[in-house]
Design a protein around this nucleic acid. Sequence first.
DNA 1: ATAATATTCCATCAAAAGATGGAATGTTTT
DNA 2: AAAACATTCCATCTTTTGATGGAATATTAT
Lengths: 207, 207
Amino acid sequence: MITPLEKARQNPGSMKARILNSARRLFGDYGFHGVTTRMVAKDVGIDISTLHYHWGDKQNLYESVVADVNDEICEKLIEIEKKVHGKSLRVRLEVAIEVMADYLFDNPEASNLILFSYFGKTRPDSIMDSKMSEYVTNIAIAMGLAPDKMDVSPQANARVLAVWNSVINFTSGENLFRSILDVDRKQYIEVVKETLRFILIPAFTKE
Amino acid sequence: MITPLEKARQNPGSMKARILNSARRLFGDYGFHGVTTRMVAKDVGIDISTLHYHWGDKQNLYESVVADVNDEICEKLIEIEKKVHGKSLRVRLEVAIEVMADYLFDNPEASNLILFSYFGKTRPDSIMDSKMSEYVTNIAIAMGLAPDKMDVSPQANARVLAVWNSVINFTSGENLFRSILDVDRKQYIEVVKETLRFILIPAFTKE
DNA sequence: ATAATATTCCATCAAAAGATGGAATGTTTT
DNA sequence: AAAACATTCCATCTTTTGATGGAATATTAT
């Protein structure tokens, strides 16, 4: 059985895909309640009933968007793991910061959607919760913060979360933070990467 | 001229204050668009017109809530600065983590509102932006990351922001993160504080 | 070409949401 | 006590919003 999400991905120019992309950007900007189906339809240049035809109700469209973003991030994590396999903790962090920052700066709506879906009280994503729990644990082990899957302490997981959070915030808060730092986009990206290295690496590489 | 917000603060039991508090919690949980005036009124146990009578339109109520939270956080920062004045960078961080974490865990809606107002595209808070910019710069100087007010580099400001972000995220994301770490509230608070110390202190205290 | 299927839009509905006027009630001032 | 003012709620209005039925159009299969 092929899901609408897979269909949209298979044909990037299709109406399904166009709707998904508009929805992704808008939900990322304004959150679930801040976006109306009419806004999305207008952005795509179609009627709302066409939107409902392809994606069902608003909730379903939103969940598809969140699933889309989560899958993408999952792929990124796998890509990173491939690159850093067997490397030192310092290199792991350097590469992870570089790759994740680049991805999130290219897809700011992804970062926002993650924040919205994590931090709001409206989180029906119990599937995502367990998926994320698994990722975090795996990363903790890969980083050598825990011996094996059966014995990952809350402390180890919390440290992984702290790393993850740092990256997310700077990309989601770009608008505000850039005005505070008073730099252009290119400079901002560099400053953020440098800051992340400054903050994160010493914690994990000290003797 | 006395503002409605000051009036509400002067009399904590008043209708103005009760509405403000309900609105604060609800807006913190669901964001501006996720809350209806009827929700707030129902939570207080009053009619919507009473709400409008005291606070005007929804936008105005929301802005009062944000201003309320910002003022409170500003007070906390001043309180911290008093405690750590003249102390070492390590102690500064330890105290800041302790006090801010305690405050935000006691007032999770504050943390959420900050995130909502920082990260959403709907930020008409240009006043807050400049205020925050000033705080960040002051902290950077107090932390010895910059020589004087005229010469605070983006790097220095970014480091202050990184510290601030770390604390915010763990309090806003408590629901999700606690389920990942699988700990109770008390344990969670301790793990978070420990993790923040683990991540933040080495970066600023290494030779 | 024709039938079957898929897609799109127009018109419309019902519910939700922001907002207000004005009557009723309570409080303060004179 | 009476007048002036403040507070509260009920009824109601308008706009927005999510959603759908059905006709029109395009696409694909036979």
